[in-house]
Design a protein around this nucleic acid. Structure first.
Lengths: 223, 223
DNA sequence: ACCTGAACACCGTTCAAGT
DNA sequence: ACCTGAACACCGTTCAAGT
């Protein structure tokens, strides 16, 4: 009995999956997807690069675990008990804001849509689609349509933010794209030229919610 | 004058950007994104790996050019002059089928949504959204919502097909996912468990069109 | 102008060897 | 059981040297 209380303390800096994932998130936030290497991770954790493989299978699993970590936190922060329509908007915005804070998550979600984090998002959407009163046979298509939209814009948004830095960089990026679009052949791409101006001045969040509302409006019309 | 007709023929196997892109598409089709390396490409073209850089800036540009090649062909194959609603469905299906034939295109479109190929898709969607009579101030959000959905499902679909092979492999992949989902905690993920059965038996094309129709229904409701 | 191919600076992953 | 770090088999990209 007494012996148990004296069992050796774990070294304060012992490797755990959690510590590895937290360090990975920090590297990804600082340097994007390219910033995460096993060598950089080992250096930050003051260990050998091979040690990480004792706790995590490979880089694919490491990226998935880092994404799970961010998304789980984002989904947990929501307040529950809102009407379904608002709950879907809140859920989508939570994902959107998580990608805003961690742009690499956007690419990871759309690049590996069968990972656990995406399943959690789908579960959240599905619960609200059910609460909305959508007939059982339409729920699957309705929920996956919302999910596809969220993941699609997630990828799109992530790329604009990827070029490091804050909102200024994204604004500059969009200005560049808009300028390129404005120079297109008006004959072949009249629409794109037309919306080029809107692109530079548009608000991502507003565009995102408009898309969600569009799908929700379609859902209401269907039943 | 006579001299011009005798100017030396280009060597039959001279490198051109077009030949490089075609070889890249072949490698991508055969081995997915991992199948494309400058060494494999050089071997297939019977040249040195450095020679490719004379015609194409880097790997990012090469992947974009390969994607442009596939998407341009897919969009050109459509029959024009359908009513806008049908035209949007046809356009979306053309993209869907291109990804079905070349799964790596899905990942590339969602991973780099500002490339020219995506702009062409947006241009096509925008033209039909305009023809549909959507008010000018709603066109940008409507067209980008459709685009985001297409890119989102593109990414999702591509991953399932990535594991090489034909429809059998995708069916097996979905069965595996469905089996994993069916084992989830019914308390935490009731919806996902419920739709797991539907996942294994669902038709991708039908699901895709249902999403498009949902957004179109939302559009009609809005005006 | 266009091509060659060795060289450079990286990767992810493995594994004998340590504690 | 867990960690070390050199070694392996690759990458994309560059660049002096060729034609």
């Amino acid at each position: 009995m007494a012996g148990e209380t004296h069992r050796p303390e774990r070294r304060a800096d012992a490797l755990t999956k959690e510590r590895i994932v937290e360090a990975a998130v920090a590297l990804l936030d600082a340097g994007g997807a390219d910033g995460l290497t096993f060598r950089a991770l080992a250096a930050r954790l003051a260990t050998g690069s091979g040690a990480i493989y004792w706790h995590i299978a490979d880089k694919h699993a490491l990226l998935a675990a880092a994404t799970d970590h961010v998304i789980a936190r984002a989904l947990a922060d929501r307040v529950a008990s809102a009407p379904p329509r608002e709950a879907i908007r809140a859920l989508a915005l939570a994902v959107f804001d998580a990608i805003d804070a961690h742009p690499w998550v956007g690419a990871q979600l759309s690049g590996d849509p069968w990972q656990y984090a995406v399943l959690c998002i789908l579960a959240g959407i599905g619960a609200q689609v059910t609460a909305l009163g959508v007939a059982e046979r339409h729920r699957f298509n309705a929920a996956t349509a919302l999910l596809s939209f969220v993941l699609g814009l997630a990828g799109q948004y992530a790329v604009g933010s990827r070029l490091v830095g804050g909102d200024k960089d994204r604004a500059a990026f969009l200005r560049d794209v808009a300028a390129r679009w404005a120079q297109l052949d008006p004959e072949r791409h009249p629409f794109v030229r037309q919306v080029a101006a809107r692109l530079a001045e548009h608000d991502d969040r507003e565009q995102f919610l408009a898309g969600i509302d569009l799908i929700l409006a379609g859902l209401e019309r269907a039943h």
